[in-house]
Structure formats: structure tokens, C-alpha cells
Amino acid sequence: RLARFPVTVEMLSRLHPARIQRDILRRLAVGAVDILIGTHRMLGKDVIFKDLGLLIIDEEQRFGVLHKEKLKGEFRRVEVLTLSATPIPRTLYFSLAGIRDLSILETPPVGRLSVTTYLGKYDPGIIRRAISVELERAGQVFYLHNRIYDILKVKNMLEGMFPGIPIGVAHGRMKERELAAVMDEFAAGSIKILVATSIVENGLDIPNANTLIVDNAHKFGLSDLYQLRGRVGRYKLRAYAYLLIPPHIFVTRQAKERLQTINELTKPGSGFKIAMRDLQIRGAGDILGKRQSGFINQVGFNLYCRFWQEVSAKYTGKTVQQPAEKPQMRGVIDDAWLPSPGLRFNLYQEISGIRTREEAENLIRELEDRFGEIPGELEQLIFSQIAES
């Protein structure tokens, strides 16, 4: 993309031979490289910039706190832009509390369709039908199996179902050239079914791959599931994601909440809503420590958020709005429409914070996106908050 511009662009990663890496680092140190694109390799002690002005961190959720603190320590006077479809709870809360600026891109590419998501028990019949339908329309399939020790058994099972269909395997313990060759073949369309671990979570853009099957979906985080689902539906065709759970297995409450969330929020551009739900489920973690999630359940989400708003306000000079002594709300949420007491409680809290018509309309659209048509009494309750405020 930058070939026509008068800038020198280089890429640095462990996949490069040592000789090429040394040459890039030498030119970088003297200012002969204008833009350096790289992996975690850029965190090495031998990477020295002559005059760095802008640091862009893509897929921010893939970096740990120690990595971020290292970047912060080395580039104190550098403008930093972090990008993520699903920021981790700690980073998201930095923005919600006003510690960092936040911009949201909600508009998907023109023509992008939502991914039809199926959540259910593992069933070979479902797998056979899903893959058959995709192959019939000359498409390709991602099959996610996140255990390396028996990933070849999955490949053998699929070869038995679909004899003669090219099937590849990709995981992190493969040799670099072997892994690159498999991914190149899949991108070229030579491999029709790719059995892989979560190594394919980021960076792949295969417009012809529009069916995703995730084995043991309950073991993935909410951000991981969203990123994995983003591997399909990257063109104008309808894509399908099958999130499968082994039968007769215990699923934790948090896992159920994650799976319910990813099954509800399927529209393109839902990353921010999913990240907000992840923050509520897991907590914001240590603002001043290393943990990137946790602790909110001990004090409650809203109280935790309010605490940090008050702390940050002392340094920013902003005024924190005091809550009303009595909730001004007339009406109730029908428990037949929303059976979960926890979700109803959260919804009451959201409704109590409405101040403008735009906020009311945004909440109604979100509820319709998550739960379908809402009762007329609930819509009246939401709009009544405008008059009450």
C-alpha cells in the first residue's frame, strides 16, 4: 500500500533470518527506516529507534501488562495509538474512567453481513452437514481444535467424512516454513478444510472461508471467540459459526455467560459491546498492577467504576455526577420477557442513567439487537426517564 510513497518500510519478526534482522536493525538505528512493522520481536533490547514519533499497537489484547509497561517505559514521549476489536477489561476501563482517550469505529465495511452463529452440543452429524454445505458452494472451512496432542485425530476423522478433500493442519509447534506453506495453500484455495489451533485467531483474511467450527467452545475467552468468528464472513457471502460443547460436560457460570453473549451479539461492529460485557463478567483487574481482569464481583461493577471515576477526577479536575438519592423510575421489567434477575438488575441500572432521548433510543436498539422485540411497557419506562431527569 505504501509502495508509491517516498518512505522506507520494513518488517521485523522472528521468521526473518538473523542476517536480515541485523541489517534492518542497523538501518533503523541510523534513521534509514521510516516505518517498522513487527511482532513482539520489536520489544527486544537490540531494537533502537533514532527518533520515534508514533507507536501503533494493533491487536492490543494479545499483549500482556509487562509488555505494555515495557513499551510505556521506553517510549514515554511518543504518541501511542492502541487498536483492538475487543480490548481487554483493564484497557477498556482505562478509557471508561477517562485515563485514556477512546474512539469507537462501529460502521462495518459496506455489504458485510452478520455471521449466523449456532451454539450447541458436539454432534458429528452437524459437523458433516455444515462442512458439506460450505463445500457445495465452493467455499473453505476453519475447524478449530485447540489441543495439539490429538489434532491429527480430528484431521483423520474429517478425512473419513470427506475422502478426497484436501485437509491441512496448522498449530504453533510446527516448523516455521511448514506452517507458512500450509497457510499459503489455504489462502490459495488448495486446502479446503483447515484444522487449526487458535494460532489462526488474528491476521488471516480468507474471503472464501465462510464456515467456522469451534470444538470445546466453552474453553475460549469472549475476546477469543469474537476474534475467531471474525475469520469468516469477510466478504459479501453469508458466513456460519458453529460453537460446539462436548455433551455431558459441566460448564461454569462464566463460560455460559460468555457463550450466551457471543450467541446474542452477532452484528458486524459488535466488538465494543462484547468487550463491555467481558468487563462486567470478568472485572477490570488491577489498575495499578499486573492482572488484566478480576475483582469487580467483590464490590459490584457500578461501584467499582464510580470509585475510579472519583479517583481520576482528583487529577483531571472533572466533576463526578452524584447519583440520585432515590431512583426515579415508574414501572417494572416483565420477568417473562427477561427471566434472569441479574440481567434485569443491570437493565434497571442502565435505565436509571438515561438523560437524553438519544441515550434512550440507543438503549432500545441495543435491547432489540440482543433480545428481539421489546414490550411496549419497557419502551415507555425507558422514555419516561427523560421526563424524570
Rank of each mutant, 00 (worst) to 15 (best):
Q322T: 11
V133E: 11
G125N: 08
A360K: 02
I287Y: 08
I287H: 04
G203M: 08
G353Q: 12
G53M: 08
D150N: 12
K155N: 02
E79A: 14
V251E: 04
E358G: 07
S190T: 15
Q280R: 13
F345S: 13
T261H: 02
E264P: 05
T316M: 05
R306T: 09
Y235K: 15
D23P: 04
D150H: 09
L367M: 09
H145I: 07
Y122F: 15
T107V: 13
V299E: 08
F162Y: 02
D51C: 02
G139E: 00
T8H: 10
D215Q: 10
S84C: 07
G342I: 14
N302A: 12
I354Y: 03
A97R: 02
T91C: 07
V78A: 05
G64Y: 07
L179W: 09
Y242T: 00
V110H: 14
Q227C: 03
L244K: 00
G53K: 10
V214T: 04
I281Y: 03
G289E: 04
V7M: 08
Y118F: 13
V33Q: 05
T266K: 06
L265E: 00
D278S: 06
I287L: 13
R173E: 14
R291S: 15
V65F: 06
T86E: 06
L92V: 07
K72M: 09
R128S: 03
L279M: 02
M42H: 10
V9C: 06
E377V: 14
R62C: 09
L15I: 15
D51Y: 02
S270D: 08
E185L: 12
Q380H: 14
A209R: 00
R234E: 00
L96I: 15
G221V: 06
V110W: 09
K68W: 05
T319E: 15
P375W: 10
I287N: 03
G189D: 01
G125T: 08
